[in-house]
C-alpha cells in the first residue's frame, strides 16, 4: 500500500483488507543457512514456501513456538532484497539483546534445518528500490543494528546495477559491533560512500575520534539539503530522534526523512 501522507488528488480508497493482506497468514519456513555477522549478531536464511517477495526496508514477523505451545513473535528487518534466482528466500539479521526472550534463541540456539513461522512482508514507507523517488540521492543513517534494513537497500542497489548515489553514516559503539563493513566502503568508487563512527572505542586507524555523529559530520559527509535526498534513519529511538532533529536543522524537508526505530523494546 502506498504511503498515504499526500491527501491531494487522493485515489479511490482501497479495501482495508488489502492494507495488511499479505501479512495475515503464517507460513512455515525452514532455516536453510545461518552465519555470524558479529559476536552478538547472526544472519538467518529462511526458505519460505509461497513467499510473495519483499523489498529492501521491509520487515517480517517471526513466530517461535515452545514445546508447551507457548509462542512469541517479533519483527525483524530483512537484510537483503528478494533474489529473483531464489524468490522464496528471506534473509534477516538478528542482534542479540541481553535478557531478551527471542533474540538470544535466534542468535545462539536456532539450528539450521529447523522450522520457524514467518508472516509478511510488512511495511511500505521505509522502503527503497531502484527508481524510487525519481532517482533522488539517498542518505542512510544507521545506529547499531539499525544498519540491517539499510544494508538491504545498498544490496538492492548493487543487485540492480542501479546508479543512484548513496551516502551512508553508520554509528556503532566499537569496531566489533560493526556489521557488513566490507559492503560499505569508505570511498564512493561505486557510488556508495560510507563512513563509520565509533561512540565508545575506535580502532587506531579510525578516520575520526570517538564520538557520536554530529551536526558537522552530517553537514560534511551527508548530502546537502538542496539536493533533496531521501533520508532513511534507523536505530535506537534516541539515535533516530537526534538524527532527525539535525536533518531538520540542516534544512532537510520533513517529508524526505523516513525513520524506523530499533531497540531492545522490539525484542
Amino acid at each position: 500500500m502506498a504511503p498515504t501522507d499526500a491527501p491531494e488528488g487522493r485515489a479511490a480508497p482501497a479495501r482495508l483488507g488489502d492494507r495488511f493482506a499479505t501479512t495475515h497468514g503464517w507460513r512455515v519456513a525452514t532455516v536453510v543457512d545461518a552465519w555470524p555477522e558479529t559476536a552478538t549478531a547472526r544472519t538467518l536464511v529462511l526458505d519460505v514456501p509461497g513467499w510473495p517477495g519483499h523489498r529492501a526496508g521491509q520487515h517480517v514477523d517471526l513466530r517461535l513456538t515452545s514445546d508447551d505451545g507457548y509462542t512469541a513473535s517479533r519483527a525483524y528487518s530483512v537484510s537483503a532484497p528478494t533474489d529473483p534466482a531464489q524468490p522464496h528466500r528471506v534473509q534477516v539479521t538478528v542482534q542479540r539483546v541481553t535478557g531478551g526472550e527471542v533474540s538470544p534463541y535466534l542468535v545462539d540456539d536456532l539450528p539450521v534445518g529447523a522450522g520457524i513461522e514467518v508472516r509478511g512482508p510488512v511495511g511500505g514507507w521505509f522502503v527503497w528500490e531502484p527508481g524510487a523517488a525519481d532517482g533522488a540521492p539517498v542518505m542512510l543513517l544507521a545506529g547499531g543494528s539499525g544498519v540491517t534494513p539499510l544494508v538491504a537497500m545498498v544490496r538492492a542497489r548493487r543487485a540492480a546495477g542501479d546508479r543512484t548515489p548513496f551516502r551512508v553514516l553508520y554509528s556503532v559503539r566499537m569496531p566489533t559491533d560493526a556489521m557488513f563493513v566490507h559492503e560499505l566502503p569508505g570511498t564512493g568508487l561505486d557510488g556508495v560512500d560510507a563512513g563509520l563512527w565509533f561512540t565508545r572505542a575506535a580502532p587506531p586507524d579510525a578516520a575520526r575520534p570517538v564520538g557520536r555523529i554530529g551536526l558537522r559530520d552530517l553537514a560534511h559527509h551527508g548530502w546537502p539539503a538542496e539536493l533533496a535526498p531521501v533520508c532513511y534513519v534507523c536505530g535506537p529511538t534516541s539515535f533516530v530522534e537526534a538524527m532527525s532533529r539535525m536533518l531538520l536543522v540542516l534544512g532537510h524537508d520533513m517529508r524526505m526523512i523516513r525513520a524506523e526505530r530499533f531497540g531492545p523494546s522490539t525484542d
Partner: peptide, 24 residues
C-alpha cells in the same frame, strides 16, 4: 483462517518448529 497451518493436516515431513525454544 485457510492460511494458518493446521496441525491435523500438517506435512509430516515439515521441520520441527523452533526446537529448544522455551520462552520466558
Amino acid at each position: 483462517d485457510p492460511a494458518a497451518p493446521d496441525p491435523a493436516t500438517a506435512d509430516p515431513a515439515a521441520p520441527a518448529l523452533t526446537p529448544g525454544f522455551r520462552g520466558r
